[in-house]
Structures are given as C-alpha cells and as structure tokens.
Simulated assay, not measured.
Amino acid sequence: MASCHTAVVGGNVIEGHVPASTIDRLLKDRPDIRGLAVPGMPMGSPGMEVAGVEAESLEVLAIAHDGTTSVFSRY
C-alpha cells in the first residue's frame, strides 16, 4: 500500500493520493476499517494531474484491521 504521503484523518490512515470526495465518504459513513490507500502515484489522481496526459483509472482500497484490502471506490 506504499505511496508518497501518509496522513491520519478522523482516526483512519490515508495513504497516497486519495480523492477528497472519498475521504468525505469515509468520514460520513464511518466504516469499520483501518483506512484508505491509493498505492503508487497514478496519473490523474489528486495532485498528479498533468495537462495533455490522460488520467489513469484508479482504485481506492479499504484497509481492514487485519491488513486485507478491498476496493472502496473506483475513478
């Protein structure tokens, strides 16, 4: 799940370029997870937008308390 940025928001870890709307959903819904991650630095993710470069699709992964992951959202 490694990326370039790590934060703790509302008691959940946020790893990588997680879109703000997904963090808002996390804070609203409060699922029982450790946090969210966008591994790597996908082009087009927040902060990785480049004019003339097509955005990659990306998956935001939910990290369970046991370390397993599942898809939380797709962009």
Rank of each mutant, 00 (worst) to 15 (best):
G67E: 08
N12K: 08
A51H: 14
G67I: 10
V53W: 13
M48C: 05
H65N: 13
V50G: 01
G47Y: 07
G35Q: 00
V71A: 07
E15C: 06
P42T: 15
V13H: 01
V71D: 05
P19I: 08
D24E: 14
A20E: 06
M1Y: 09
S57N: 12
G16H: 06
G67F: 13
F72P: 02
L27S: 09
T22K: 00
C4A: 12
M48D: 04
D24A: 15
L26Q: 04
E54S: 13
R34G: 02
P42V: 15
D32N: 12
P31S: 11
A64G: 06
V18Y: 00
D66K: 11
E56M: 13
G44T: 06
E59W: 05
V38D: 03
R34N: 09
P42H: 15
I23A: 01
A2C: 04
L26S: 03
I23K: 01
S57C: 08
P42C: 15
S57Y: 09
S21N: 10
P19M: 08
S45G: 06
P42Q: 15
T69C: 05
V71I: 12
G16V: 07
M43C: 03
L36K: 04
S70A: 15
S3F: 12
A7P: 03
L58E: 09
A51G: 15
E54Y: 09
E15G: 02
V9P: 00
D24M: 14
L36M: 10
A62T: 10
P39E: 06
S57K: 11
P31K: 09
D32A: 11
I23W: 01
Y75I: 14
S45M: 03
T6Y: 02
G11P: 10
G11T: 06
F72K: 01
V71Y: 04
V71N: 05
T6P: 00
H65S: 12
R74M: 00
V53P: 12
V9N: 02
R74A: 00
R30L: 14
M48S: 05
A2H: 11
P42I: 15
I63R: 01
R74H: 00
L36D: 02
G10N: 05
R74E: 01
K28F: 08
G67V: 12
T6W: 01
F72D: 01
P46A: 10
V53L: 15
P39Y: 08
H17M: 09
I14D: 01
H17N: 10
M1K: 09
V18T: 03
H65M: 14
L58T: 12
S21Q: 12
M41Q: 14
S73I: 07
I14H: 01
T22A: 03
M48E: 04
F72I: 04
K28I: 10
V38L: 06
R25S: 13
V8F: 00
T22I: 03
M48P: 03
S21G: 07
P31G: 10
E54C: 07
G40E: 08
L61A: 03
A64H: 11
P39K: 10
R30I: 11
A37Y: 03
P42Y: 15
G35W: 00
N12C: 07
V13L: 02
R74S: 04
S70C: 11
T22M: 04
G40Y: 07
